[in-house]
Computed example of a mutant assay.
Amino acid sequence: MNAVSELRVMAYTADGLLDANPAYVEALRLLGTDGRGEILVAADEEQRLLGTIMFEPWSPESEIARNADEAEIRAFAVAPEARGRGVGRDLVNALVERAREEGVTRLLLSTLPEMVSAQYVYRARGFERVPERDWTPMPDVNLLAYELVVKD
């Protein structure tokens, strides 16, 4: 888990995504350690970690999922040196397949407006904006919501 945590923090820091909320570093490190989510990883032939994404089924603590047929994508991160090689696309596709296996009908996520690369990957996979689920967890941190209706 430590390598996954460090990759998340490195990727978010490289993009300046922790500037508005430096305290989020600890939450980013801990996501998935409580057993509520499933962490997927991508690695190269030498087993170097290239990226990670987390599948989190609905629970009463969910951020934007509202019921048991929904799940969330959390902590999507690709190492800066691995970007542009399809790592993010492959991780998102694997997570969508995982959601399908679990019978999830709607996959949701929150993203910062400046996470343009991640949004590109999401839109290319068919995710659409759902502004009615946008939210502000703290002042000056506005999160955009996206969803994908998962089909069999």
Results as ranks from 00 to 15, higher is better:
120 Y>E: 07
32 G>L: 08
131 P>V: 03
143 L>Y: 13
146 Y>H: 15
46 E>G: 12
65 A>L: 01
18 L>C: 04
25 V>P: 00
34 D>S: 12
102 E>P: 00
63 E>G: 03
122 Y>F: 14
110 S>R: 07
10 M>F: 12
111 T>V: 04
140 D>A: 11
95 L>N: 07
151 K>S: 06
121 V>T: 13
122 Y>H: 05
12 Y>S: 06
20 A>S: 11
83 R>E: 01
149 V>H: 00
26 E>N: 15
82 A>R: 09
107 L>P: 08
145 A>Y: 09
75 A>T: 08
121 V>S: 01
104 V>Y: 00
76 F>P: 02
98 R>Q: 13
106 R>F: 00
12 Y>T: 06
101 E>N: 10
138 M>N: 04
69 D>L: 04
19 D>C: 05
6 E>V: 08
54 M>R: 09
85 R>Y: 04
39 I>P: 02
107 L>H: 11
32 G>A: 07
107 L>G: 08
47 Q>Y: 02
115 M>C: 09
12 Y>H: 08
6 E>W: 10
66 R>I: 00
56 E>M: 11
126 G>P: 07
113 P>Q: 07
149 V>G: 00
32 G>E: 08
95 L>C: 11
62 S>T: 06
102 E>D: 13
37 G>Q: 08
27 A>T: 14
17 L>Y: 12
119 Q>R: 13
89 R>Y: 02
145 A>P: 09
95 L>A: 05
33 T>I: 01
9 V>F: 14
40 L>V: 12
7 L>H: 07
84 G>T: 04
86 G>L: 10
95 L>W: 06
97 E>K: 10
142 N>L: 09
15 D>Y: 10
60 P>H: 07
98 R>H: 14
49 L>P: 13
94 A>I: 06
93 N>C: 00
29 R>E: 08
60 P>T: 10
55 F>H: 12
41 V>E: 10
24 Y>P: 01
3 A>M: 10
147 E>I: 00
52 T>F: 06
11 A>V: 05
14 A>G: 05
13 T>M: 10
65 A>F: 03
125 R>D: 02
128 E>A: 10
110 S>A: 15
100 R>A: 09
103 G>I: 02
51 G>Q: 09
150 V>P: 01
81 E>I: 11
